[in-house]
Amino acid sequence: MALTDYELIPTARRVLNLFMMVDTSGSMSGEKIAAVNDAIRNVIPIISTINDDNPDAEIKISTLTFASTANWINSTPVLASDFKWTDLDAEGWTCMGDATRELNRQLSHKHGFLASASGSYAPVIILLSDGAPTDDFYGAMSEIMTNNWFKHSMRIAIAIGADADIDVLKTFTGNPELVFRAQNIDALKAVIKATVVTSSMVASRSSSVGMSGTKTGTAASGATLISKSEEAATALAEELDDVAGLSVGDEALIDSLDFDEFD
């Protein structure tokens, strides 16, 4: 019996759950939803590669759409390498509160999507919306804020066009630097690709320790654990700094005077 006859398995990987919450309300119809479909379709093979080469984490994807109701596209999270994207249509209201409640329900180890024998990393949640919630979003937020999975998750929001409610998205992410406003179709595609890839890469790795710059909580050596959200924000800012029609963080709050392709 040679060494190669002993059965070895891929080293135990934690699961990184990537949640994509996509606004499919009526205002998204046309080129916006087409751009979302196209961008996600193009980013899946990249995520699949990140999953295949990563001994630290296996990446699973869940898609939650919300319009007049909130719906999961798959009944359980799907491994990135098996994930198939089905084009979404857009029609109806913007029940973001419903979607947040539905997310809260599945962000559970015992009763939700997060069961895993080898444990999980804190999930990544990417929210895309072009409007304002038509239901009780803030009520749903106060409920989900008691969910530890949500509290520890890395959350990124993409505001599509000028009508997206930035305050709502800021409340959702809890970090203005992780809210991006895409003013045109190209910017939207670029920001979807960058957020999905960067967040998966950062969140699926072990934490990094770096030299504390301006951060607080400095240890004796000056070394400190770099928060993954912070790492993602920095990486995204670098990645996206030359994308035209994109504003980040507080900038996104300024009503842009730019020509808006969506109107």
């Binding site: 320790v209 240890a219 050596s221």
Partner: peptide, 22 residues
Amino acid sequence: ENSGILGKARYMAPEVVMGKTL
């Protein structure tokens, strides 16, 4: 001397993770 990033948590010596040393 160091390059800024000190490493991945699961591979670094615990004293680096705990911030006791570079």
